[in-house]
Design a binder for these strands. Sequence first.
RNA 1: GCGAGAGUAGCUCAGUGGUAGAGCACUACCUUGCCAAGGUAGCUGUCGCGGGUUCAAGUCCCGUCUCUCGCUCCA
Length: 502
Amino acid sequence: MRLVIAQKNNKQNDVIEKIVSLSKRKGFVFQSSEIYNGLNGCWDYGPLGVELLKNLKEEWWKFMTYREDVEGLDAAILMHPRVWEASGHVENFTDPMIDCKQCKARFRLDTLGEQVAEKKKEKLLKTLSAKLEETDKEKFVVLQAIIDSEATLEEKFEKLLETDEIAVALLEEMNCPQCGTKASFTEPKNFNLMFKTFLGPVEKTENAIYLRPETAQGIFVNFLNVLNSSRQKLPFGIAQIGKAFRNEINTKNFLFRTREFEQMEMQYFVKPADDKKHYDNWKAARLEWYKSLGMSEDKLRYHDHPADKLAHYAKEATDIEYLFPFGWGEIEGIHNRTDFDLSRHEEYSTKSQKYFDEESKEKFIPYIIETSAGASRGFMAFLVNAYNEEEVNGEQRVVLKFHPRLAPIKAAILPLVKKDGMPEVAREIESKLRPYMKVFYDDKGAIGRRYRRMDEVGTPYCITVDTQTLEDGTVTVRERDSMEQIRIKKEDLLHHLIEKLA
RNA sequence: GCGAGAGUAGCUCAGUGGUAGAGCACUACCUUGCCAAGGUAGCUGUCGCGGGUUCAAGUCCCGUCUCUCGCUCCA
């Protein structure tokens, strides 16, 4: 059984490895700073990758903003530090962690108490209290204040672990929940997932500023600006595509978990009473979008968050997940963020974020339905989904079956042979198509090889100039997936392709 | 951060202390007339990096960096 799983895992990893290799070979994705041994968790998009990514973002932008009720925005990556206090990131985006030196297990400090029995906790507090009374009067006072406070044992324990000067002393008395070894914990380490930098050239603490860990806050703080400048009324949305940064402890799985990534977010502002309706609408619409661009239906699913696992701001939440070779992974989240964000910004900025509804003559803070898609993750999902190995006449063919609108190159123009005036005719066709779409000209080697090369980068159409072209002005158009050819007049090519790409 | 594995040509990999290799890819020419055909020639390397052992290191030892997997993390 174990062997079967191992083999299965190897096979799954093979697919990712093949895609990573293909990505480098054909210019989709390169490792960042590769000549300097690479930079962990950062990737560069090559000539074909940037086309695919751009097409993906463009499809999203058209779908989300080419409508009456959604406006676009491009907020700065750097924002006022208070934004991240209001959003909860300063408080929640950091987790003190400890390792057991004996068994190497890692624990989150704030949840360590959950793994200790009630009686054990009482005993620990007594031992610690007695010890500190003799050794460290200052800490003893702090400890005693917490012990005497009106709180459950559980809460007191958590509080002690959160109090830096006490935590270390307490940890020395505790046993590792996993292996039972006493006093084997490392000092608590702070994992702050936000990238910190400095505003201005002087590296002073008070100049510290963060690279945004999500694009959403740029939308929230511009809610009133957009509302007042666009003449929108509820319900309406604000959409934004942009980079975000998270200092992940571990990066993983190619583009799936990276430290620098791109988000495509739309925040839809609604009347609180309508939140359920809009949440359901967007949830359905977003899944349909992936399907409409050719993502396999059986590799897509919702993962609804159970009520007890919801983030601090959410009332309802679901992930759209794609079945990657390494398992199901989130590519988009749809959340009902309630009035949490705008209320917090009202509180922290002291600027009213209320909306006045003309019909009901009511003033209130709108609810927000968020659709938050990962551009980098979507890129990878579409790439993995497109990857196919097929057998054609006993030979293996690798083909990326991108939706034509996503394909980096839309059409290749190929003279059947490099003589008899065919290259000249092909060049003419190329120059007529090039202003309208990304095309590729190739006259090198055998025609079959050129078709396969185009299959490997997902080019949906190959236009071939042959002897008959010289006689009657028609060319063949070969379709990537079926490999079937039709013959059309070269004058009709542009119209034909534009129709196919519409 | 811990544990395990890996790093040799653009890609995939062989090379078990004694001259740096193969296939594919790429470039040019010839041939070729619709699905990875053939021929000829050519290009490609601080064997991840640094140190050590040795007459001699891609190979053995130590360190380090990067990648992959697992743990952990992923409000």
